[in-house]
Structure formats: structure tokens, C-alpha cells
Simulated assay, not measured.
Amino acid sequence: MPRELVIDCALSFAVAASTVLTSVIAGGRAEQSPPEWVGHLLLVVTAVFLVARRRFPPQVMVLTMLVSLLYFGLGFGTGAFTVAPALAVYTAIAAKHRIAGFSGAAVYLVIVLLADRLGGQRDVSEGNVWLVIWILVIVVLGEVSRSRAEHLRVVAEQAARAELTREMEAQRRADQERLRIARELHDVLAHNISVISIQAGVAEHLLRKDPDKAHTAVTTIRSVTKDVLVELRSILDVLRRVDDAGEIFPPSGVEGIERLAGRAAAGGITVDLDVRGRASRVPADVGLAAYRVVQESLTNVIRHSGAARASVVVHVNEADVLVRVRDDGRGVPGDDVPAGNGIAGMTERVKAMSGTITAAPADGGGFVVEARLPLRRPEP
């Protein structure tokens, strides 16, 4: 049996026993028609209705009122007849049937008071004052119970929404982190593998004709391979959350751009580098974004442009960092760049820093990528 039903059955029994006992103690009437046992039976009936008060609050309230009014109308003089209707009113209001509860309490109270006044045989003053107070207290308690239940419901919903929001935020952060790592891996691999591929081709071509130059190309491949392995290890360590006391790849920031230019030169591209301003003023995330823009731009120059020369400009200004990479090749067809990689990847990275970027054919030939990265992001 459900716990609430057990409670209501116990309440019904307690109301029946207490009201009948009160009626017995109050004593009989001068007129014995109908007999006292009829009044006791009516009190028991009103109490039995309370068993269903949670399932049918308005209906139980109406039934208890009708039977109690019948008890009152038959001339039984105790005030016990108001107990069951009062509990039914409380239940109706607490169960959000406010209009029914308020209206039922008012109508019930008016009928009892009018009957007392019109009958003219009862002491209506003190008893009716207590009746009014009793009904008002019950109405207030019902409203308080309803308000508390509503408050608890709202708090529970807010807690559920907050938990859902936390889960969604955690999922969003995880997705952003996966996307960031994917971009890092793409930028690291695309640039370095391009250099390795070119140097491997040079080594293969010169292996018999000019072993010394072939050796230089192989040395470059070894250096680039070592660098990319160290950088990949640094990225993967973030995923594993492993503390590594070994070699750490030099900071991928403005100060690392000269190294990128050297790799591009090893790939057969003449690079004119112009770095100005204090790199120490650049926040780490902004410096990394500038580094990746240069890295991806030079990768595109090596792989796609057919250029012989490129210029890299990095100016650290008061408010932002200007990055410009221009080549003298045939340009990079935008349609050939997969979404999420290449130019699209640079655009995502720069926008994440609240910066701006343009990538388009340059006047006079070639291709130019220009980005501006604010040193401080605007407040959200």
C-alpha cells in the first residue's frame, strides 16, 4: 500500500474517532429524533471521505461539506462537524485548487453563520467567532503549504536546469578542446610534413649527383622530424595529463616565428622576415595564434603557391599584433581548402581571439594573408 494512502487512512480513522468522541462527551439533545447514532454515523462518513482527499481534492471537499451541513441541519450541536471539511479545504488549496478551496470555505462559512442566525436557538456569538477563526487558519495553512510546495518545485527545476547547463557547458568545453587539439595537430603536421616531403625529394634527387647537398637535406629532415615529434609529444601530453620532465618544444609564439621562416627557407622558399615590437607584451594565446597563422600561411606557400619568395611581417603594436604573409606565387585556390583546415582553420583561430583576418590574391600577383589580433579581448 502506498505510504500516502496509509497516512490518509490513519488520518481518517483519527478524525472519525476524535469527532465521535467529542460528540459523545458533549452529551445528548433534548429531542432524540433523529437519534445520536445518526449524528455519529454522519461524522464517520465525513471522515471516510478524507481517504480520497489527495486524488480528488475538490470533490472530497464538496462531499464533506454537504454531509457536515446535513449533520448541522439535523440539530446536532457539537462543533466536531467542521473538522473534516476544514481538512478537505486545506488539501484542496494545498493541491493548487485555490479558487475551489477559497470559494468552498467562504460558502460553507456563510451557510453555517446564516443558519445559526436564522435558527435563533443557539448561542451564536462565541461559537461563530471560533468557527471563523478556525476556517481562516485552515485557509492560511493551505495557502502556506501550497506556496512552500511551489517554491520547492521551482528550486528543484532550477537545480535540474543548472545541472543540465553544467553538463552542456562541460560538453561544449570538451568539444572546443577537441577542436583546438585538432587544429594544433593539423598545423603542426601540415607545416612540418610539407618541409620533410620537399627535403626528401631534394635528397633523393641529389643523392648521387651531390652527396653533400643530399646530406644537408637529410640533416634538415632529421631536425624537422625531431621538432615535430617533440611538439606532438607536448600536445599529446595535454590529453594524457602526464607531467613530462623531458625536453619541451620552444614556445609557439611570436618568438618562434623566426624558426618557422628558417624551415620555409629549408623548403626552398626565400623568406623576408620583419618582426618588430616587444614579444614579451603578447599574451601566450595571442602569440600562439600569430604563430599558427604564419605557420599555416607558409605551409600553403610551400605546398600550393609555386612561389619562390615570401615576406612575413609581424608587428607588435600598442593594441594588437599585425601578421601579414605574402608570396609571389600563383595564389591559393580557396575552393581547394577543406572546411576546418587551412585558411578556414586560421579564420576560426583568429576569430576565437576576437581578431580579424583576410586571405585573398594580392595586387600584382601572389597571395596575402593578413590578421590583426587584439592584445586584450573585449569583455563579454
Results as ranks from 00 to 15, higher is better:
Glu4Ile: 15
Val129Lys: 11
Val337Arg: 09
Gly365Thr: 02
Asn192His: 10
Gly342Asp: 07
Arg146Ile: 04
Phe13Val: 06
Arg3Leu: 13
Leu236Lys: 08
Glu150Ser: 14
Leu118Met: 03
Trp37Thr: 12
Val321His: 06
Met168Gly: 10
Gly287Thr: 00
Ala182Gly: 04
Ala279Lys: 04
Ala284Met: 07
Arg146Thr: 00
Asp320Cys: 09
Ala88Gln: 11
Ile138Pro: 06
Arg309Leu: 09
Gly365Glu: 04
Arg98Ala: 10
Ser223Ala: 15
Asn192Pro: 02
Val48His: 05
Arg349Pro: 06
Glu370Phe: 08
Ser311Pro: 15
Arg241Ile: 08
Val188Asp: 11
Pro34Ile: 06
Ser33Met: 10
Val242Lys: 15
Leu63Ile: 11
Asp123Arg: 06
Val188Cys: 08
Ile193Ala: 05
Ser18Asp: 13
Ala106Arg: 00
Ala344Trp: 07
Thr220Ala: 13
Glu177Arg: 01
Ala310Cys: 15
Glu184Gln: 08
Gly365Trp: 06
Trp37Leu: 07
Pro380Met: 04
Val124Lys: 01
Ala266Met: 12
Pro211Ile: 03
Glu296Trp: 05
Leu118Phe: 03
Thr19Asn: 12
Glu177Asn: 10
Thr216Leu: 11
Ser103His: 05
Asp285Gly: 00
Gln295Thr: 13
Met353Arg: 13
Glu258Leu: 09
Ile357Gln: 01
Leu87Pro: 02
Ala88Trp: 05
Leu232Thr: 11
Gly77Trp: 08
Glu204Trp: 15
Ala284Arg: 10
Leu69Met: 12
His97Arg: 01
Phe102Tyr: 10
Asp123Cys: 12
Met353Pro: 04
Val294Ser: 13
Ala159Gly: 07
Glu348Val: 06
Gly365His: 10
His215Lys: 11
Asp210Met: 02
Glu31Arg: 08
Ala307Pro: 04
Phe249Asp: 06
Leu373Tyr: 12
Val286Lys: 04
Thr46Ala: 04
Ala279Gln: 10
Ala149Cys: 09
Arg292Glu: 12
Pro85Phe: 00
Ile25Asn: 00
Val67Met: 00
Leu5Met: 10
Leu50Ile: 03
Asn341Asp: 05
Ala352Tyr: 08
Asp285Trp: 04
Ala26Cys: 08
Ser223Ile: 01
Leu114Asn: 04
Thr165Asp: 09
Pro361His: 01
Val112Ile: 15
Val6Glu: 09
Lys213Ser: 11
Ala266Pro: 06
Asp320Lys: 06
Ala16Tyr: 11
Pro211Asn: 04
Val350Phe: 01
Ser194Val: 04
Ala339Cys: 08
Glu177Val: 00
Arg326Gln: 07
Pro2Leu: 07
Gly306Ser: 07
Thr270Ile: 06
Asp187Val: 12
Ala86Gly: 14
Met65Glu: 14
Leu373Ile: 15
Gly39Ser: 14
Gly127Trp: 03
His151Cys: 09
Ser12Gln: 03
